[in-house]
Design a protein around this nucleic acid. Structure first.
Lengths: 124, 124, 124, 124
DNA sequence: GTGGTCTAGACCACT
DNA sequence: GTGGTCTAGACCACC
């Protein structure tokens, strides 16, 4: 939860949201699981409550979590993340990054090796 | 594009920089080519000169262009874009996006098809 | 439903009340019919008794049900739901939604079709 | 901007957002028009800046306005409100309200008269 | 206990 | 000038 990828210009709440999202994607937090309370997480991260709430709001907007008032925030089931527009956004970003890497001289061989290290995709 | 995976509210100069970068990567602007002057581009885009200047500064920082005082801004040669830290950043971004797509249910088959459409990489 | 046009984060008791109201309006529960007891409904919905009680209180306030102490909650007769202020509120809500749909490009033709599908109103 | 429809349980920022939306739908604010600045509106409404910002954020999420950093908030063009899911939500809410009115004894005749007063729809 | 709202005020980046 | 972020702290409703 600590090694922020980009400390420079990215707002705090944004970084926190990305970190939590990473934990969801990694299945560190599983579907239906209760996430840390706003107050607790804020305390742990030494950050204001509102900042954590903003991070959670972002994730809720993107469909990754949902709220039960009075109970807490929970990880949304994968089937319920219907937001296909989100898939499209990610795909176009991915293509842009690929083009940039290509331009910078990364070969498709290197890329295949790289991507197979990311153990979720095995490109045969 | 890199630090703002999800934000649409990106500053103007940032968007302009990304657009120019896309033109460089697309080889619309070739190595060594003279880029439009700040004032011309500002006029064309109906934007303040300072905004264009900031965009060019950003690209210069990232190594994509260089300045010859009194002559203008030029596209850097690919070999000179040694900025490997940039490659590493992009790679980690890319892996993150891949994991996210995987989590959202995109199969590696779909992905291969997608990436081969991005005509710079042919994954056999 | 009425005050929270756009919010999904509606309290539990509120949702339960709306669901019961829908069953009344649908004539699934008829006039004078005995509603499920608080404890039974709470058990069935896996919810705290207090939450169901709040839902019933809300419906009683709006005039849809009434309580006979020692016997239970019953569906109010339509003639007794004199709460005209409620009618006025709903009407103004409805006009607002119509304007919004109009602004979003829905034609009055489409709308007539839509409303006739809602099988309680036949606009000739 | 003042006669709040529902002062009871609806959060302030929500009411403000609805009021601004009404002004957009009424064409009081036209497409592309600059909206009042956060600070000015907050001052005028005697409300905190953050509250107004939240209202604007809500409208931006729903697609009614957009932001140019450093310049201000603007009314989105109608063609760009692609969010059709929003149309569907509104339609289902509308149907629910119609059923409720029907249950409360409003005849379809009354309703037609009512709707034709809302001068955007002429149901023949 | 939980999240949701609101205030007052500071500081920053963008145009 | 504009919007965006963050803090510190209060108060409320829900479960």
């Amino acid at each position: 939860m600590n090694n922020f990828r980009d400390d420079k210009n990215v707002p705090l709440f944004h970084q926190i949201a990305e970190d939590i999202k990473a934990l969801i994607i990694n299945n560190t937090y599983n579907e239906g699981e209760l996430l840390p309370s706003i107050r607790n997480l804020a305390f742990e991260l030494r950050v204001n409550n509102n900042t954590v709430k903003k991070a959670y709001d972002k994730l809720e907007n993107e469909g990754y979590i949902y709220t039960v008032i009075g109970k807490g925030k929970f990880v949304q089931k994968k089937e319920f993340i219907i937001n296909n527009s989100r898939q499209e956004i990610i795909k176009s970003e991915l293509l842009f990054l690929l083009k940039e890497l290509s331009y910078l001289g990364v070969t498709s061989e290197e890329l295949k090796i790289l991507m197979n290290k990311g153990n979720d995709f095995k490109l045969s």
